[in-house]
Amino acid sequence: MKSLDELRKLREKAQEAIRLREQTDGTKIVVGMGTCGIAAGAREVMLALIEELEKKNITDVVVTQTGCAGLCEKEPLVEVIRPGEPKITYGYMTPEKARMMVTSHIVNGQVIGEYVIAREETVS
């Protein structure tokens, strides 16, 4: 049984990772979690993203969520915000596409053009 003791042991490691994260400008991944997103499979996309970051031991990326963006028919939506780059919005996401996106975009810096539905021109 997982216990709080086990969690306590992670504390030091966690603090170290947080210190490292603070030194870098982190990437943010935002998943649309309105009713429209949830009905289209946003939870599975979110869980795939979390699992992939966990598997690849990526500590400087924050996964967060937002509500309905008014593009319901293109849900699940995933935005990737990387410092110094235009915001990329992916549409019609699936767990498989989300995993591929982590490898390609987050790890290797290659946007998957095929899945992009919007590209914000202003640099964040």
Partner: peptide
């Protein structure tokens, strides 16, 4: 136990 900022870290997930 681990602090709010640690919730998204791989080991904590």
């Amino acid at each position: 136990e681990v602090g709010e900022d640690a919730l998204g870290l791989p080991a904590v997930i």
